[in-house]
Nucleic acid binder design. Structure first.
Lengths: 217, 217
DNA sequence: GGAATAAATGGACCGTGGTCCGCTTTTATG
DNA sequence: CATAAAAGCGGACCACGGTCCATTTATTCC
């Protein structure tokens, strides 16, 4: 069972880790200047603190800059835009999850059968989503960023691989995207908040969908 | 075969049509003052013109107000916010579609079997999406508006009804939302633009998904 | 028709995301 | 260590979405 690749960071600048550690390393773009790296760390820390205190929905770029004692331009230079900053804050968590489903123990990791792994993948996604829903919702706003982001690609590769190993016939890529669509933050939040669904229902709904797609007659 | 209900407008102010016409009427809130109605019309016209000229992505509220020779506050009073205005511009098209799948001829309308109607529903959605993609993308930005909007609810009711008539077992509402997720503008646009999928592939992908969900063994 | 009431109006105003560019700091080079 | 090139910096500035409220306009009732 060959791990497909290194975990891929949310931040465009970050590079793949050197080793095959199960937990991701805090790697940086080596060409980044010392002061830039320092400011990046200060900004991430400030952003995380502000999100903890006031919620991601009230995070303003000015506030982050001020809290980190840094000019506003620096925030944009480091993270591109607001969504980029939010992604960077989510980065750590994202990479843990990636490691778990690529290298970790069953049922998520490689030592389980594909259908079990698919089920576990969705269930774990839903739980992590629930844990940081507001942050994910904020980061999700821009439609363009939603699908192109590296973590999404990693997940898509992973799910496609599992579908193929489960001998699924048909347009695997399209089925993959359909499955991932079910885990979209805004979508899950809608079901939980406006449709009165419980987390358990969503989890078993995911497993049912996996069954329908993999056991099609 | 009983039509479930009247077409529901995108705009909160609009009321259901009086008759059972196949094509929707331009109905208004009767309590709306004459000057307000006049401005609404002027604004919708101006917005549509600007969108035609420069694309929905460049539409600003100031520009619409100026083009309609109206104060900016009026635009917001009439349509709530930018998404509300875009929805209002889409309203006409939306209601045509609603009429088509609720009262129109087969394969969309009531005189076809449920699975055929489901297939036609997705295919037609995808085509209409393609025709006004930029406008739909702009209107889609706000996650909260995405799922709560009246047309989405109408579609959900419709698809649920068809699934039940097709004797589908399981959590029909969840399956409905999954199916509709496949027709999300941002999602479809991503597949067409970034994944190099063709409209035909998406259409047959939809039909395949319908088959997997309705013919589950 | 005129007064009273309610609704609508418009544009000044505000907050926030994002850009720009002259200046400062770091780093590479000899 | 000196110097030059490159990278980073900061905060003034801009555009746009959205709010507010003093004033104007439509409607209703007598």
């Amino acid at each position: 069972m060959t791990p497909p690749s290194e975990p891929i960071s949310l931040s465009p600048e970050a590079r793949p880790a050197e080793g095959r550690a199960v937990l991701p390393l805090y790697d940086q773009d080596p060409t980044e200047r010392a002061d830039a790296a320092r400011n990046r760390a200060k900004l991430l820390e400030a952003a995380a603190a502000l999100i903890r205190e006031q919620g991601a929905e009230h995070l303003t770029m000015d506030a982050v800059a001020t809290a980190a004692c840094v000019g506003k331009g620096t925030v944009f230079r480091r993270f591109g835009d607001r969504v980029g900053l939010l992604f960077a804050v989510l980065d750590q968590t994202e990479r843990e999850f990636q490691n778990a489903f690529m290298f970790g123990p069953p049922p998520l990791g490689p030592d389980a059968d594909p259908v079990t792994r698919l089920e576990a993948f969705g269930v774990e996604s839903l739980r992590r989503l629930a844990a940081d829903m507001n942050l994910y919702l904020e980061a999700d706003q821009q439609a363009s960023a939603r699908y192109g982001a590296p973590p999404r690609k990693v997940r898509a590769r992973h799910v496609s691989m599992l579908l193929r190993r489960a001998q699924v016939e048909g347009d695997v890529e399209l089925l993959t995207e359909t499955l991932l669509g079910t885990l979209d933050p805004a979508f899950v939040n809608h079901l939980l908040t406006n449709r009165g669904r419980t987390a358990e229902e969503l989890e078993s709904g995911w497993c049912d969908l996996v069954a329908r797609i993999t056991h099609h007659c």
